[in-house]
Design a protein around this nucleic acid. Structure first.
Lengths: 168, 168
DNA sequence: ATAAACTTTCATTATATTTTGAAAGTTCGA
DNA sequence: TCGAACTTTCAAAATATAATGAAAGTTTAT
């Protein structure tokens, strides 16, 4: 396989994985493109490479910037904006973990905390079952939350050597 | 808050979280309903509870069965099928991890392995950047894979006490 | 063999999400 | 202050995803 084809496959695979995990396919593809681009790219180049419209490119890049995965660059003497992706995969993983935790896990934990407090008749099977499921999910969610928090703060080598050491 | 309202909130929250993570909202809601139902339910009851059509209920239940989260039950002397969800939250988490690993992570790792092998000019920045990103992502993906494999096999208490011990 | 009870299918419809592109907005040099 | 270069917006269109429900299929008791 040669580079051009391989790059294409990478962009496709990343887009597919993204869409399976609730991330817009185009956003994942733009990210993939920037990940394998040694230089920062202009909006034009991204539009061209992925055959997407200006509006789509613009919004997608803004989202990527909000996710902390991409940044704008300016070249001296040029008006155009260039976009560049952090290539440190551990940083990327941490950043994604951080954002998804904030946007999705935290709100759910808040609701589960409320629902855990709901009082009811200890003899009512409907209440017992509700209470058990909610409480158990809440505990699990909090364990995940703590693990993510650690990961977000952690150094990559330390993190994986600790985790994998347990499991050997 | 009383039970009826709380149940409703739980179903909503679970549906929302599911849809953010690439799982059909209705599927997550049916699962939530079964999770808080002490008894197995019929298709009719599920349709009624969630205001969904027969076809939708049928397909969603089949999917949940394929995910290993729900099973059919038969009551003696009755033709009707009843549906019941495993209430063990750790089993559920493992089952979801297992399925998503198989359906999504494994195929991606396969592609990354191929792409890691692509040869190129070590002086070409395009090749160097491509190669580094692909290789690094591949390593990360394999660490995640190993961790999931361990989790899938693990006992809940052992797993969390090991993981959280590292991070205290 | 029949029919009632129940389940499954799938073409059609509905909904949700994503994309487009032209117009409006902004910035900057002359 | 003007206009060229560039960016952003957003209503409308396109696409993708999910839901409906009637018809077809299946099972079982008689």
């Amino acid at each position: 396989m040669e580079l051009t084809e391989a790059r294409q496959k990478f962009i496709e695979a990343w887009g597919k994985l993204g869409s399976e995990w609730g991330i817009n396919r185009t956003m994942a593809q733009v990210h993939a493109l920037l990940l394998i681009s040694p230089e920062a790219l202009t909006t034009e180049e991204i539009m061209e490479s992925l055959s997407i419209s200006r509006g789509n490119a613009n919004m997608t890049l803004r989202d990527l910037i909000n996710w902390g995965l991409v940044e704008k660059q300016h070249k001296p003497g040029e008006r155009k904006e260039y976009f560049f992706a952090d290539k440190d995969v551990w940083n990327i993983a941490r950043q994604v973990a951080k954002e998804r935790r904030k946007r999705e896990l935290d709100p759910v934990i808040k609701i589960l905390d409320e629902l855990s407090k709901v009082q009811g008749d200890a003899k009512d099977p409907a209440f017992k079952t509700f209470n058990k499921s909610v409480t158990d999910i809440n505990k699990l969610a909090k364990n995940v939350d703590k693990t993510l928090e650690t990961m977000i703060k952690a150094d990559e080598n330390w993190f994986w050597s600790s985790v994998l050491k347990i499991f050997k």
